[in-house]
Design a protein around this nucleic acid. Sequence first.
DNA 1: GAGCACTGC
Length: 774
Amino acid sequence: MASHDDKGVKRSNMDDNDQDSKRIKRAENGDAAPEKYNPYLAHLNEDGNGNGTNGDFESPLDAFERHKTTAVQAAQAEDSELNPWTGQPHSQRYFDILKVRRDLPVHKQRQEFLDMYHNTQILVFVGETGSGKTTQIPQYVLYDELPHTNGKLIACTQPRRVAAMSVAQRVANELDVELGQEVGYSIRFENRTGPKTMLKYMTDGQLLRESMHDHDMSRYSCIILDEAHERTLATDILMALLKQIAARRSDLKIIVMSATLDAQKFQSYFYNAPLLAVPGRTHPVEIFYTPEPERDYLEAAVRTVLQIHATEPEGDILLFLTGEEEIEDACRRISLEVDDMIRESDAGPMKVYPLYGTLPPAHQQRIFEKAPEPLRKGGRPGRKVIVSTNIAETSLTIDGIVYVVDPGFSKQKIYNPRSRVESLLVSPISKASAQQRAGRAGRTRPGKCFRLYTEKAFKKELIEQTYPEILRSNLANTVLELKKLGVEDLVHFDLMDPPAPETMMRALEELNYLACLDDDGELTRLGGLASEFPLDPALAVMLISSPEFYCSNEILSIVSLLSVPSIWVRPNNARKRADEMKMQFAHPDGDHLTLLNAYHAYKGAETNGDDMKRWCHEHFLSYRHLSSADNVRAQLKRIMETHDISLVSTPFQDKNYYTNIRRALLAGFFMQVAMRESSNSKVYKTVKDDQLVMIHPSTSVTSPYDWVVYNEFVLTTKQYVRTVTNIRPEWLLEIAPVYYDLDTFEKGEIKSALTRITDKVKRRQAIKGSGSAR
DNA sequence: GAGCACTGC
């Protein structure tokens, strides 16, 4: 990100300078001059991409006054022959889309929106699905902010990349401009904006990253936070930051957009900002509850789907379950039962589709296939049922769903600051989630939602909103970001839902041990550097320290591989072969080293000119995740280069090649170390936390030493440490002397083991010393 | 001898 961000900063300065000179010129000519005072339009003549447009055109916008425009004025400009932003003739498609846009619920309230926008700095906007807020509001702002007059951009954030990309494309079409020109988007790995860009869709995390180098967000005149009700970590931090920035920058406007449920909360958080609500456009959904609680929700879910198929009219079904295994199981059971139904009672055909995030994209696409035809002419209609995780609640919308089956559970991340463990737990959903799920049935016509819990449970037991991410996460990364963002006082940083003090303390403690924060809580040089990387602090510190261990190239690869989903593919019907393939890459001393071997093999085959998709398939490796790791690696490498972190390797023939890497792992992960309970035991105890753990069975470590460093702690049926590598305990005292300071170490087996080792090392050194003296 | 809800930088 460093390189293109640098460009971004330079560019915006250029624009500003450009703008200044134009502004002066404009002042000389007086306000009426319709001359080309538009820095964006000026490029049309220069860069050769302007299709020969003449920048000297009379735009209806010339008569507009910033923050004083009306809906009528804007509509007239939109109706004109020539595009007011580019001077190009409007296409027929433009007018076709314009007609549709004017039919959106939000359109009726354009003037009302402008009146409010003109009179406030912060505005809360509430619009349900189908209101058109994501595409229209930024355009209404565009016609009022007139970015060509001050060179500042309008930003609209989204929690997900796909949304930022697809909405930007849609709005570019609506404005009849080319994507990446006047309208663009910016997401990790892809910046499709240019010197002419006025409206920029971006991920919330991307705006947060940007603001680390521009604390006032000075490039923007208006920032729109969309889908704020989702309460992502990035959105929560942005809201608190924007509250502060708004006090410093009276010229910055902020719009917070949300679905209805929590609107008042946003309003009061932003000093009782005015609120505008626009109805959505959805069909009614009838809700059914079970009279009695269900003992086995999976069984009940399968039964309900079959019952819908047998008794309800045509229409597709969406069933929400919690995870891959459960979904595959349910799909099998439904398919079997439907076969029986067809044989026994002449039911229509039903196609069953699983849907979850780790499913390859090509398989995900299958859910959009049409429902099957009746088995014979005039037979009972066919339908499809999609069995999905929460991914269908927000990320993916499927048209044609008429029936939703909601057992009321989802897997949620929870964080326990005491044990410092993040884990996934099947938990009851919130009322807001239940409503969102039900809404999925009413997108194309009136639908039905079957809740597999009682109405009483819905009212009394479900919480209103899912807890925001900030309350469910390890905040080490966030605290580091905030320090870099210049937030001095974390305790009084005005977050909408402040996390537990213990979570904050844990994060500060962790960053202090990593030497990212000093004892006064101030950002150190290392901390500043670590915050430049889009990584967890431990990974960043490991990467920054790796040149000292002569293996930064290798650690860079390992860090990238640890930053993407698992590269190992293990299909249910070929587990044994997959495990055998993995053995080819296995390094006896560590899973980190095994990952590295697989990556090197991958790069080798690539250089060989092999068909990489095929190669990966043959070797049971995920092409998707390996190429994504490659992408991450390139980004991290750029950041290392900009900060003069050298890329070095120990020669592969050197006997210390792997030892150096194993030692470097400890530079970041010295807090994630476990010691074997006794020499024959399979049980390990984690350092300082004293958790009893086993090594995850997926490991390739054949003969575990008494000490291992681990990448993650997973809590499932048992407590496991996953991705482990053998280490020598004396390295700990050498590489992390503060954390392993025996004077402050709590009494126990680990302390005594470490004490024995120190003594041994001392003795050895004494012998060596006396030996050389002789 | 297990199993990755979902995002994001």
